[in-house]
């Protein structure tokens, strides 16, 4: 209980909302760090994923490398890279990009692989070049799964970016490490809550984006074919059997 009040007090203290170590600044750092990491990871992973998805080759290799990447403990990698390139932000950037690549890569190629081969074949048969097939057919149809990959990468990076503070004065993770050091549990918990809130907000945005990028023709047709499932099944249950389904339609 005291943790909670301490946390609230810490979060609501106006002094923590200003200055270089203030919550807005650290939040912005955290966000920017996440964004840069994702962009770099996407620039690497998306073209490779598209290539794998389009050609159907190299999938086994990608799965193996992704698996290996995932198996690397991020803190270990962070320390290792830090020993190599020194203290600062470079090490977290490298470590988290490595973390973000596998889900984006998987999203990119599974998005392409999930497309009906007949559609691709028809596009080629009417005279689309390979590049046109990628950009005009595979990309729009595979986009929802790619966004899904970006979504899980974002979640991992936002959460794990707290580790950046382990070797740099940076981001929301600072509150955790600092709180731990000086035994200020209000600060620690407050920092965690901020990270969690950020993750939830980003998660919501991605969920929305994922819905929005589903091409219209792919969702179209279904609602008109099948009258709203829930509104139909409920009345059926309330009716007696003799009245039958014809009654339901008239309602």
């Amino acid at each position: 209980m005291t943790f909670l009040t301490e946390t609230l007090a810490w979060l609501l203290d106006p002094a923590h909302w200003v200055g270089a170590g203030g919550i807005p600044t650290r939040l912005a750092q955290h966000l920017l760090f996440t964004l840069v990491t994702l962009v770099v990871a996407a620039v690497i992973a998306v073209p490779i994923g598209f290539l794998i998805g389009h050609t159907g080759r190299g999938r086994g290799l990608a799965v193996a490398i992704s698996g290996a990447f995932r198996a690397i403990p991020t803190l270990g990698l962070l320390t290792l890279v830090a020993l190599w390139v020194g203290i600062g932000l470079n090490a977290p950037y490298v470590a988290l990009t490595v973390l973000a690549i596998p889900p984006i890569l998987a999203g990119a190629y599974t998005g392409f692989e999930a497309i009906d081969r007949k559609i691709i074949d028809a596009a080629r048969a009417v005279g689309m070049s390979e590049m046109q097939i990628v950009l005009k057919v595979e990309l729009p149809l595979g986009l929802p799964l790619l966004i899904g990959g970006l979504r899980s990468a974002t979640l991992q990076v936002v959460a794990t970016a707290t580790l950046a503070a382990y070797i740099a004065d940076f981001g929301l993770g600072r509150y955790l490490f600092e709180g731990l050091r000086i035994r200020d549990y209000g600060e620690m918990l407050g920092g965690s809550i901020l990270v969690i809130l950020l993750a939830i907000v980003l998660e919501g945005l991605f969920a929305l984006a994922q819905k929005l990028v589903v091409p219209r023709g792919v969702t179209a047709g279904r609602p008109t074919d099948i009258p709203g499932g829930s509104s139909r099944s409920r009345p059926v249950m309330e009716l007696t059997i003799e009245e039958g389904n014809s009654h339901v339609r008239n309602e």
């Binding site: 007949k118 559609i119 028809a122 005279g127 219209r216 023709g217």
Partner: peptide, 18 residues
């Protein structure tokens, strides 16, 4: 180029769903 000069119709139409 050749394919763009030849009409192709397949079973299940092969239309672009999007």
């Amino acid at each position: 180029k050749l394919r763009r000069s030849i009409g192709y119709v397949m079973q299940n139409s092969g239309l672009l769903p999007h």
